[in-house]
Nucleic acid binder design. Structure first.
Lengths: 224, 224
DNA sequence: GGTCATTCTTGTATGCTATACAAACAAAGA
DNA sequence: TCTTTGTTTGTATAGCATACAAGAATGACC
């Protein structure tokens, strides 16, 4: 039949194509970048496939070729983004000299420029698209685990004592960050206000005493 | 010109039509009910205007007539729903005999059947549709204020002492509820797990002592 | 170097959806 | 009865995601 039509990914139509050749990897990456930028600003419904393709200097069909659906692209971009965000926040916090500064730097970075809002939309999307849930779940698990590692490393390196196990603190941190982000979005609050609100929320969980100081103390100190 | 076409709401095209006649009020209400049911289960993008109209035995055009846009209908339905949810939760909690039971009943009702997920989507929608933000903001303010009133009433009626002012507790409660709901959705956790998680999160804020008991005590007791 | 399968790009077609719009119809009030 | 206003019924349209077709590039193997 003189070639005939070649079906896209005939072996397993459920999975997105992992670009193998250099050009393909490049295109895929450019699409992800463009999607990040537009989705972050306008949300899932606010950015069309045509917009994204145009921003990446590509064809709309290339999006369906590499990601199957717009929503799959959205989730992949959001997950990649939030992991970058978390890494940047931890790096920023790593320069802190006290437990209080550490927490504040972490919170400020995470809430800055509404980086979480993007990922929150991906989280809520999984209700309608359960097939994309595993991707998001893995990302949340990594957030907890990597935050856990960074937290544990900080504690060990600085000789502090933690008021709760790192995993619990990490889960609390992200749950509260999500809640504050969403409410802040809806109420149109400035990032600075969100930081203060979140610090107030997580401080007692992190072990803030009534005098406003964190209970993180040196292991050889008077704490615990 | 023999009548001619009658433009929809020519005076102010920005506002939805408040039904005045009995039939109109009925139609509007049926549409809201149908929208609540479908949106709650399938989300904004998961339910089409045609679906909702069919469920309400109405015409798609009637939705645009009464609500201008699908998203406005979504927000109105979500806000109405979450206020009902809050009222039901407070009524449920009102039967509690201890401060611990009060908190637990409140949390269980709010997290039951994912009633918050619907409203969370409305909150995040305001980023893309700032014109709908005032509606959501007013609802959040009412949630805080009514929860505040109920909380204050409980405190006064039972002679308990609060560890923080009611407004602060209300804001913390809702922020944490939102965060736990979203993470629970994404991680596919059962409602029971969410209740436990949220109780752990808000307990220290509500004044839980290290022995697990809330610090809410009778005013003539040993507390505070 | 020729053959061929695979990957990727380019382009078109389609079905669905929200919504704008037109006009008939119903219900009051003058 | 006539007019105004609210409501219903019906049609048209533009935008969208995506399915699909087929050429073009790439690389492996003989």
């Amino acid at each position: 039949m003189k070639g005939g039509p070649r079906l896209v990914n005939p072996s397993d139509p459920k999975h997105a194509i992992r670009a193998t050749r250099a050009a393909g990897r490049q295109t895929r990456s450019l699409l992800l970048d463009a999607a990040s930028g537009l989705f972050k600003r306008r949300g899932l419904a606010g950015a069309s496939i045509a917009d994204i393709a145009a921003a990446a200097d590509a064809f709309p069909s290339q999006i369906t070729y590499y990601f199957r659906t717009k929503e799959a692209l959205f989730v992949e971009a959001a997950c990649r983004d939030v992991l970058h965000l978390a890494r940047a926040a931890e790096e920023q916090a790593g320069r802190a000299r006290s437990a209080q500064d550490y927490t504040r730097a972490l919170v400020e970075s995470v809430l800055a420029a509404d980086g979480l809002g993007f990922f929150v939309e991906a989280m809520t999307l999984t209700r309608r698209r359960p097939d994309l849930a595993p991707f998001v779940e893995r990302t949340i698990a990594r957030l907890h685990a990597e935050g856990l590692r960074a937290y544990a490393a900080e504690i060990a390196a600085r000789g502090w004592q933690a008021p709760a196990d790192p995993e619990t603190v990490a889960r609390r941190f992200w749950a509260v960050a999500v809640g504050v982000t969403v409410e802040g979005q809806a109420m149109g609050r400035a990032p600075g206000d969100l930081v203060i609100e979140m610090l107030r929320l997580i401080a007692p969980m992190a072990g803030e005493a009534s005098d406003g100081r964190l209970r993180l103390v040196r292991a050889d100190g008077p704490g615990r």
